[in-house]
């Protein structure tokens, strides 16, 4: 109680504050406040660290899936390379863009990177239809260009995408009523663990396949082409989904790594502030006690 009584006079001398009482309580509260903040930041650090570890383990699996899926996509693309298939420059026909994002956030800017790219594409071709895989891009594009959206898929990104996912999506896209001149798939290309960029790969329409210059090299029955188209769409989609998933995991790992680092910085900063404040309080109390003691001695 001594400190409380002695405080106002001391405060008034050091700081020319108008309300010394309020300042005093504020000082005590800050110590507690800092303690509380420290605690919460430590908890946040724990959480982000755990998320980072989870993302790291998922990343290795995702990268494995990505490498495997690459051969799916590349093998199916060999046919089109040999046939020299080119996307049709369709007159009056619409284009379709499939965007492979995922449901989950907390992974830096990889979803918004794709959204931005899509918006840039939409400026040039405003009547392109969109099919969006994943909630994140759906939310972003649903706001800006809702009328282009034809289909949206959710539930992807919990685990490594399976080929069954890709097949089901491809089926639903094939069922779309409009006849599209070209179908492209946008996904995040995995450059290395730090960088990704949204790229598009074409998935050809039947017409584009029949009109490719080298198609005569292949011998085929009727109706096979339609199957090939559907199957290659699923292949490319699987590739895109797996690669996008790997990118997402690695982006999440990086984001969580940064978050933990920032939390560590904040903790050390707050620790210093906390110690200083604590010392200041102790010194203040000591000064008060000594002043009080000497004052009563003199009396």
């Amino acid at each position: 109680m001594l400190s409380r009584a002695a405080r106002p006079a001391l405060r008034a001398a050091t700081a020319a504050s108008a309300r010394p009482v309020a300042l005093q309580t504020a000082n005590y509260a800050t110590l507690k406040e800092i303690e509380g903040r420290l605690k919460s930041i430590r908890n946040i650090e724990k959480i982000t660290k755990t998320m980072k570890i989870v993302a790291s383990t998922k990343l290795t699996r995702a990268q494995k899936a990505m490498r495997e899926s690459r051969s799916y996509g590349q093998t199916s693309n060999t046919v089109f390379e040999k046939a020299e298939t080119k996307p049709l420059e369709g007159e009056g026909k619409k284009d379709l863009l499939i965007i492979c994002s995922s449901d989950k956030g907390l992974c830096g800017g990889i979803h918004s990177g794709m959204t931005r790219r899509t918006r840039a594409l939409l400026v040039d071709h405003p009547d392109t239809d969109l099919v969006i895989v994943g909630e994140k891009c759906k939310a972003q594009l649903g706001r800006s260009s809702a009328k282009n959206v034809q289909l949206s898929f959710a539930g992807i990104g919990k685990d490594v995408p399976t080929f069954a996912d890709a097949q089901a999506i491809a089926d639903q896209i094939v069922l779309l009523p409009t006849d599209y001149a070209s179908v492209s798939i946008m996904y995040n290309k995995f450059l290395n663990a730090q960088s990704y960029e949204p790229v598009t790969v074409p998935a050809y329409s039947e017409e584009a396949i029949t009109e490719s210059p080298n198609i005569a090299e292949f011998e085929m029955d009727d109706g096979v082409l339609e199957n090939l188209r559907e199957y290659s769409l699923a292949n490319s989609l699987y590739w895109a989904l797996a690669e996008g998933h790997a990118c997402e995991q690695s982006a999440r790992r990086n984001a969580m790594d940064n978050a933990s680092k920032n939390a560590g910085d904040m903790i050390s900063r707050y620790q210093i502030v906390y110690n200083r404040t604590r010392q200041a309080v102790i010194t203040g109390e000591l000064v008060e006690i000594i002043t009080g003691a000497t004052a009563s001695e003199d009396m």
């Binding site: 959206v149 289909l151 996912d165 999506i169």
Partner: peptide
């Protein structure tokens, strides 16, 4: 072979 997707038409 698991597939648990939902979709919505716009």
């Amino acid at each position: 072979g698991e597939m648990d997707l939902r979709f919505a038409k716009w």
